[in-house]
Simulated assay, not measured.
Amino acid sequence: MAWVILIISGILEAVWATALGRAEGFTRLGPSIVFGLGLVLSMAGLAWAMRDLPVGTAYAVWVGIGAVGTVAFAMLTGEETVSAAKLVFLAMIVGGVVGLKASH
């Protein structure tokens, strides 16, 4: 169950990071609220998962999911360009996350 919560928390990291970018310095209410809720839920899930998982592994997986999710969403929405190099490096992050899970 800790892994499921950690994956959801990583996805929520991508949500709050994206919302933070759209909040324009907290001048836009909607994205600012999404940021706050996403941040609290993401951190709470990470903390919960760390009760059963090693801190280093949990944090690295959480960050990896959040980073890949944020970039992937930006690419899908056209906010960030897609290139072969970016896709390779994102795949490397995913490979690292999978490796950490597999070695646990």
Results as ranks from 00 to 15, higher is better:
residue 1 M to Q: 13
residue 2 A to R: 06
residue 2 A to V: 02
residue 2 A to G: 03
residue 3 W to C: 06
residue 3 W to S: 00
residue 4 V to T: 15
residue 4 V to Q: 05
residue 5 I to R: 02
residue 6 L to F: 10
residue 6 L to G: 07
residue 7 I to K: 01
residue 7 I to Y: 12
residue 8 I to V: 15
residue 9 S to Y: 01
residue 10 G to R: 03
residue 10 G to N: 02
residue 10 G to H: 03
residue 10 G to L: 04
residue 10 G to I: 01
residue 11 I to H: 07
residue 12 L to K: 05
residue 14 A to V: 01
residue 18 T to D: 05
residue 18 T to S: 15
residue 19 A to G: 09
residue 19 A to K: 02
residue 20 L to H: 02
residue 21 G to Y: 00
residue 22 R to D: 12
residue 23 A to N: 09
residue 24 E to K: 04
residue 25 G to P: 02
residue 25 G to K: 03
residue 25 G to I: 05
residue 26 F to K: 14
residue 26 F to T: 09
residue 28 R to G: 05
residue 28 R to A: 15
residue 28 R to M: 10
residue 30 G to Q: 06
residue 31 P to T: 07
residue 31 P to C: 01
residue 32 S to W: 07
residue 33 I to P: 12
residue 33 I to Y: 13
residue 35 F to D: 01
residue 36 G to A: 15
residue 36 G to M: 14
residue 36 G to C: 15
residue 37 L to K: 07
residue 37 L to A: 14
residue 38 G to K: 02
residue 38 G to Y: 05
residue 39 L to Q: 07
residue 39 L to W: 03
residue 40 V to R: 00
residue 40 V to M: 12
residue 40 V to E: 12
residue 41 L to V: 00
residue 41 L to R: 01
residue 42 S to C: 10
residue 42 S to Q: 07
residue 43 M to N: 12
residue 43 M to P: 10
residue 43 M to H: 10
residue 43 M to L: 15
residue 44 A to E: 05
residue 45 G to N: 11
residue 45 G to T: 10
residue 46 L to V: 12
residue 47 A to V: 11
residue 47 A to F: 08
residue 48 W to E: 01
residue 50 M to L: 03
residue 51 R to E: 13
residue 52 D to R: 12
residue 52 D to N: 13
residue 52 D to K: 12
residue 53 L to I: 05
residue 54 P to T: 11
residue 56 G to F: 04
residue 56 G to R: 10
residue 59 Y to L: 04
residue 59 Y to M: 09
residue 60 A to W: 02
residue 62 W to N: 05
residue 64 G to E: 00
residue 67 A to Q: 15
residue 68 V to W: 02
residue 68 V to R: 06
residue 69 G to S: 07
residue 69 G to E: 03
residue 69 G to H: 08
residue 69 G to D: 13
residue 70 T to K: 14
residue 71 V to I: 13
residue 73 F to D: 11
residue 74 A to S: 13
residue 75 M to R: 09
residue 75 M to N: 03
residue 76 L to W: 05
residue 76 L to A: 15
residue 77 T to H: 08
residue 78 G to R: 05
residue 79 E to T: 10
residue 81 T to W: 03
residue 81 T to I: 05
residue 82 V to H: 10
residue 82 V to Y: 12
residue 83 S to G: 14
residue 85 A to H: 01
residue 88 V to Y: 11
residue 88 V to W: 14
residue 88 V to G: 11
residue 90 L to G: 01
residue 90 L to W: 02
residue 91 A to P: 00
residue 92 M to A: 13
residue 92 M to L: 15
residue 92 M to T: 09
residue 92 M to Y: 09
residue 93 I to F: 09
residue 94 V to W: 07
residue 95 G to R: 04
residue 95 G to I: 00
residue 97 V to I: 15
residue 97 V to C: 03
residue 98 V to K: 15
residue 102 A to F: 09
